[in-house]
């Protein structure tokens, strides 16, 4: 008899617990809009595109192999790219992790001006004028940051500007781990 009243209460409490957990995660900085990328664990898409700074030179996906690198999708028109740019500049100065840029649907003059004004943290920026390369990388909200390992496999993806915390707690430990794993192979 009493079970009949306990069941609805139990269901209600379960719902409160689930909603509460998600709300707590949101308050702790979880981005519920972020869609998990199916590209993690897969090889980077094959491509050959000119560089932003040297249009006559071609960057190929093969060049991403052989070391752990960060691939950062950016554009001069992208407002939230501004938030992370200083961090990228500092990272390029203070660490030895190579950052490869994908300049996404940008005008060359605008992109060059942005790098001149704000600093250029990129070892190289790939010029993706029509945005087709970005679709191959599953990009939907700039800025996006990927960690690519020595074999050219995507190991991590972050949508939106990276923060000091993300860098310290997720990206750097992963890069260090991948580097160590690569040494032993």
């Amino acid at each position: 008899m009493r079970v009949r009243y306990l069941l609805p209460i139990a269901v209600f409490l379960l719902m409160v617990a689930v909603f509460g957990l998600v709300l707590y995660q949101v308050s702790q900085g979880r981005n519920i809009k972020e869609v998990p990328s199916p590209l993690i664990g897969k090889a980077v898409p094959q491509f050959e595109l000119p560089l932003l700074l040297a249009p006559q030179r071609i960057f190929s996906s093969e060049q991403l192999k052989g070391r752990v690198s960060l691939v950062n999708v950016w554009a001069s028109w992208c407002v939230s790219c501004r938030y992370e740019h200083d961090l990228l500049v500092r990272m390029s100065r203070d660490t030895d992790i190579p950052i490869i840029g994908i300049n996404y649907k940008d005008e060359r003059v605008d992109a060059l001006k942005w790098l001149r004004d704000m600093g250029d943290p990129y070892e190289a920026s790939i010029f993706d004028y029509d945005g087709h390369l970005a679709i191959d990388w599953g990009v939907y909200g700039t800025p996006e940051t990927f960690v690519v390992d020595q074999r050219g496999v995507i190991r991590y993806k972050h949508t939106g500007p990276i923060t000091m915390e993300k860098l310290r707690d997720e990206i750097m430990p992963l890069v260090n781990k991948l580097r160590k794993a690569g040494d032993t192979v």
């Binding site: 869609v35 199916p38 590209l39 599953g138 939907y140």
Partner: peptide, 8 residues
């Protein structure tokens, strides 16, 4: 499309 963006 699914390979890049998932079932979403």
């Amino acid at each position: 499309m699914v390979e890049r963006y998932g079932d979403y």
